[in-house]
Amino acid sequence: MKGIHSIFLACFLVSAFACFLASAFDPSPLQDFCVAIDDPKAGVFVNGKFCKDPKLAVADDFFFSRLNKPGNTNNRVGSNVTTVNVDQIPGLNTLGISLVRIDYAPYGENPPHTHPRGTV
């Protein structure tokens, strides 16, 4: 019976240590926001985009007005996805935020898809 406890303890310690080694995460952002801009002379290159000078940021850098308009669902799956990411709202750069509006026709479907780097 003592051998079973030793084996259980050894398995527990090995799995706990393996979980510790397998942890992964994104680094913390270095600033509160980094408004994306296409001009390479604008400043620092962060997260695949160049950052606008924070003093030049305006409210429109954080605004998107097309989510209130329904998408065209006249297609094979009967749905339409309107994506919003850093390309539509430059102020989302480095914040790790994106969203979608999904419109469904009657009996419309959400096709099978994946979310890379999504949480389980």
Results as ranks from 00 to 15, higher is better:
Met1Arg: 13
Lys2Thr: 09
Gly3Thr: 14
Gly3Phe: 14
Ile4Asp: 08
His5Thr: 11
Ser6Val: 15
Ile7Asp: 05
Ile7Glu: 08
Ile7Trp: 12
Leu9Met: 14
Ala10Pro: 04
Cys11His: 09
Cys11Tyr: 10
Phe12Ser: 11
Leu13Ile: 15
Leu13Arg: 01
Val14Ser: 11
Val14Gly: 00
Val14Gln: 06
Phe17Trp: 15
Ala18Lys: 14
Ala18Tyr: 12
Phe20Trp: 14
Leu21Val: 08
Ala22Ile: 06
Ala22Arg: 12
Ser23Met: 14
Phe25Trp: 12
Ser28Lys: 13
Ser28Met: 06
Leu30Ile: 03
Gln31Lys: 15
Asp32Asn: 12
Asp32Tyr: 07
Asp32Pro: 05
Asp32Leu: 08
Cys34Val: 01
Val35Cys: 09
Ala36Arg: 07
Ala36Asp: 01
Ile37Asp: 10
Asp39Met: 07
Asp39Cys: 09
Asp39Trp: 05
Ala42Glu: 08
Ala42His: 12
Gly43Ala: 04
Gly43Ser: 08
Val46Asp: 05
Asn47Trp: 07
Gly48Gln: 06
Gly48Ile: 09
Lys49Cys: 00
Lys49Trp: 07
Lys52Tyr: 05
Asp53Trp: 07
Pro54Leu: 04
Lys55His: 12
Lys55Thr: 11
Leu56Val: 10
Leu56Trp: 10
Leu56Ile: 03
Val58Ile: 11
Val58His: 01
Asp60Val: 08
Phe62Asp: 02
Phe63Asp: 03
Phe63Tyr: 15
Phe63Arg: 12
Phe64Glu: 02
Ser65Tyr: 13
Leu67Tyr: 04
Leu67Gly: 03
Leu67Pro: 00
Lys69Phe: 12
Pro70Cys: 10
Pro70Arg: 10
Gly71Thr: 06
Gly71Gln: 03
Asn72Ala: 13
Asn72Phe: 08
Asn72Val: 10
Thr73Gln: 04
Thr73Lys: 04
Asn74Val: 14
Arg76Phe: 11
Arg76Lys: 13
Gly78Tyr: 12
Thr82Ile: 15
Thr83Ser: 14
Thr83Ala: 15
Val84Met: 08
Gln88Pro: 02
Gln88Ile: 07
Ile89Asn: 01
Pro90Ala: 02
Gly91Asp: 00
Gly91Met: 07
Gly91Lys: 09
Gly91Gln: 08
Gly91Arg: 03
Leu92Phe: 14
Asn93Lys: 09
Leu95Gln: 07
Leu95Arg: 13
Gly96Met: 10
Ile97Trp: 00
Ser98Arg: 06
Val100Ala: 13
Val100Pro: 01
Val100His: 07
Arg101Leu: 09
Arg101Glu: 01
Arg101Tyr: 06
Ile102Phe: 04
Tyr104His: 12
Ala105Leu: 12
Pro106Ala: 08
Tyr107Lys: 12
Tyr107Ile: 06
Tyr107Val: 01
Tyr107Cys: 04
Gly108Glu: 05
Asn110Ser: 15
Asn110Thr: 13
Asn110Asp: 09
Pro112Gln: 01
Pro112Trp: 05
His113Ala: 03
His113Thr: 01
Thr114Val: 08
Thr114Ser: 09
Thr114Tyr: 06
His115Gly: 00
Pro116Phe: 00
Pro116His: 00
Arg117Cys: 00
Arg117Asn: 15
Gly118Pro: 02
Gly118Met: 04
Gly118Asp: 04
Gly118Asn: 05
Gly118His: 07
Thr119Trp: 07
Thr119Ser: 07
Val120Ile: 05
